[in-house]
C-alpha cells in the first residue's frame, strides 16, 4: 500500500519573462510517503530548492498540483495556506533563522505562539521538545551561546514542536562539520522520523545519503530518477 504524504503532479515553475525566462522546474511528478526520509539531491541550479518551496506551500507553481494528505495546497486561500503550514509542516532552514534576542525555549515555542497557544504553555511545551533534542539545560540561553550543532537541534525542536506531519529540511548539514552533520541526521532518523511523518531533505552532502530511504535526483529542473539510500535504483 502506498501511503502518500505528498503528491506532486506535473509541477512547473519559471522565473522572468521573454528571453530572460528561466524554467527552473519542469514537469516534476512524485510522491513522498509517510514514514520515509526522502532526499532531494542534484547540482546547483537543478531546481531542488524551487521544488522544495512549491511542495511546502511557500512558492506557487506556474502549473501542476501539490496534495498534502487530502489537501490541494495551491487551491486554498493564502491565509488558509499559512495556517496549513503552521499546523502541518515543520521547517528547518539552512541558516536556522533563530531569533538571537529570544531564549532558546522561546525560539522553539514560536510555532505554538503563532497558533495562539498561551505563552507559558507554549514555552513549557518547547522545553519538553528541547529535552527530546537533548538541550533542556540550554532552554534559558540565547541561541548565540550555542554551538552550530546545538543551534541545528534547536531549529529541529522548533520544527517538531507543533507535531507536523511533514518536515522540510533545507541543507541541514551545510553549516556543520562532517561528524556533527552525520550525528544530526542520524538523530533525525532515529528520533524525529515516525510512521506518521514524512521528512524531505534537500542536500548536497553525500556523507549523509546512507540515512535516506529514497533519494530523488534532479538535473536541469527535471526529475532524473530515484535511488535508495544504499545507491540501488528505486522505481518510485
Amino acid at each position: 500500500m502506498v501511503n502518500a504524504a505528498i503528491q506532486a503532479t506535473q509541477l512547473n515553475k519559471w522565473f522572468g519573462e521573454g528571453e530572460a525566462r528561466t524554467h527552473a522546474v519542469k514537469d516534476v511528478s512524485f510522491e513522498a510517503r509517510f514514514g520515509e526520509m526522502l532526499y532531494v539531491v542534484g547540482p546547483s541550479g537543478s531546481g531542488k530548492t524551487t521544488m522544495l518551496s512549491m511542495i511546502s506551500g511557500i512558492l506557487r507553481p506556474n502549473s501542476g498540483t501539490v496534495r498534502i494528505e487530502d489537501t490541494d495546497i495551491w487551491a486554498i486561500t493564502k491565509d488558509q495556506l499559512a495556517d496549513f503550514r503552521l499546523h502541518k509542516i515543520g521547517f528547518v532552514f539552512q541558516d536556522y533563522h533563530l531569533f538571537p534576542r529570544l531564549t532558546t525555549a522561546e525560539n522553539v515555542a514560536i510555532p505554538l505562539i503563532l497558533q495562539d497557544r498561551p505563552w507559558d504553555e507554549a514555552v513549557r511545551e518547547a522545553v519538553r521538545n528541547l529535552e527530546v533534542v537533548g538541550l533542556k539545560n540550554r532552554a534559558g540561553l540565547p541561541p548565540v551561546k550555542l554551538s552550530g550543532g546545538e543551534q541545528q537541534r534547536v531549529a529541529i525542536a522548533r520544527a517538531i514542536v507543533s507535531r507536523p506531519d511533514i518536515m522540510i529540511f533545507d541543507e541541514p548539514t551545510a553549516s556543520l562539520d562532517g561528524d556533527t552533520g552525520r550525528n544530526i541526521v542520524q538523530f533525525v532518523r532515529q528520533e524525529v522520523l515516525s510512521e506518521h511523518r514524512c521528512i524531505v531533505i534537500v542536500t548536497h552532502d553525500t556523507r549523509i545519503y546512507e540515512f535516506a530511504d529514497r533519494i530523488m535526483r534532479m538535473e536541469d529542473g527535471r526529475l532524473a530518477g530515484f535511488e535508495r539510500g544504499d545507491g540501488s535504483l528505486d522505481a518510485q
Binding site: 491565509d79 521547517f91 532552514f93 531569533f99 514560536i110
Partner: peptide, 18 residues
C-alpha cells in the same frame, strides 16, 4: 537586521497581518 527572521516566520505560517 531581522528581515530574514520575519521571512522565516512567514514560512512557518505567520500571516501578513500578524
Amino acid at each position: 537586521e531581522n528581515i530574514d527572521k520575519f521571512g522565516a516566520l512567514k514560512a512557518i505560517g505567520a500571516k501578513g497581518s500578524a
